[in-house]
């Protein structure tokens, strides 16, 4: 591997950066390894892969999903699980299920607006009817203008009623499409649940296969005495069991030298 920062270059399978000033940030190194942009910092190394996501940076106080990590170590050895085939098949089917969206919000909004307008218009017509009636009761008043306004208002009312009916139908159609979409979502959800169960079973299978080796590895982790469940201890054991071509960033003091760490872990190491 090769690390370059601001013109300085470090090379090799075991790199000790602990005394370097300014200090390196482990998170930034891991980010750069995964292809992330880090100004002034470049790390060239093997492909990090799944296992590296779990144990690529080992620091005291870290959290670790140990079964997932252990299963990833098994995978890094090229192991597979009996559930893989069905899991992949289900994933393919999930990919084929198209669940393109149906927007019913527009139709709902339109219906709500036309319903409001219709109510307002009804009130307006009622008011005009009242005015016309009052004028009719008092002979000699000019009622022609009020009649005209009433006629226009009634015409608008009927137009709005038509529009509302159309809005109702449009919403009904959108809801029908949405129902079909929900059926497909249901199907996909069932497939996803099945895939998740298979993935869990596969992880269990892989962990079981590694169990004895894992227990021996945990016992032999330097400084593990009294800390067998410590995430750092577990992560180190997982690295030893798996195969990593990208370096592990170590921010813990379990090894005397970075060379000792590389030998024990059987992986490239950057020590901070």
């Amino acid at each position: 591997m090769r690390i370059e920062r601001d013109g300085s270059v470090w090379r090799g399978r075991a790199i000790n950066l602990s005394g370097v000033v300014p200090r390196f940030d482990g998170a930034r190194i891991v980010h750069a390894m995964a292809g992330g942009k880090e100004s002034g910092l470049r790390v060239a190394c093997g492909d990090p892969g799944d296992l590296h996501e779990h144990v690529g940076r080992i620091a005291s106080g870290m959290t670790l999903r140990r079964h997932t990590a252990l299963a990833a170590a098994a995978r890094s050895r090229g192991w597979s699980a009996p559930q893989d085939e069905e899991h992949d098949r289900i994933q393919d089917r999930i990919g084929e299920l198209s669940v393109s969206g149906v927007d019913t919000a527009t139709a709902r909004k339109r219906l709500a607006e036309t319903a409001d307008e219709l109510d307002r218009q009804r009130e307006r017509v009622a008011r005009l009817q009242g005015q016309v009636k009052a004028l009719r009761d008092r002979p000699g008043q000019q009622a022609g203008e009020a009649y005209g306004a009433l006629e226009r208002a009634m015409r608008e009312l009927s137009e709005l009623a038509t529009e509302r009916a159309a809005a109702e139908q449009a919403l009904e159609r959108a809801r029908d499409r949405q129902r079909q979409l929900h059926d497909r979502h249901d199907e996909r959800l069932a497939l996803e649940d099945r895939a998740a169960n298979l993935a869990r079973a596969a992880r269990r299978h892989l962990c079981d296969r590694l169990r004895n080796e894992f227990e021996r590895a945990v016992e032999s982790v330097p400084g593990a005495l009294g800390l067998p469940d410590d995430p750092v201890t577990v992560a180190l054991a997982v690295v030893r069991l798996g195969e990593l071509s990208a370096p592990v960033v170590l921010e813990c003091d379990r090894f005397d030298t970075v060379r000792a760490a590389t030998d024990w872990l059987n992986a490239p190491v950057i020590s901070l």
């Binding site: 929900h182 979502h185 249901d186 996909r188 959800l189 996803e192 649940d193 998740a196």
Partner: peptide, 10 residues
């Protein structure tokens, strides 16, 4: 309220 994906469900 009905949810239709794993993320919506969670």
């Amino acid at each position: 309220i009905i949810t239709y994906t794993r993320s919506a469900r969670s």
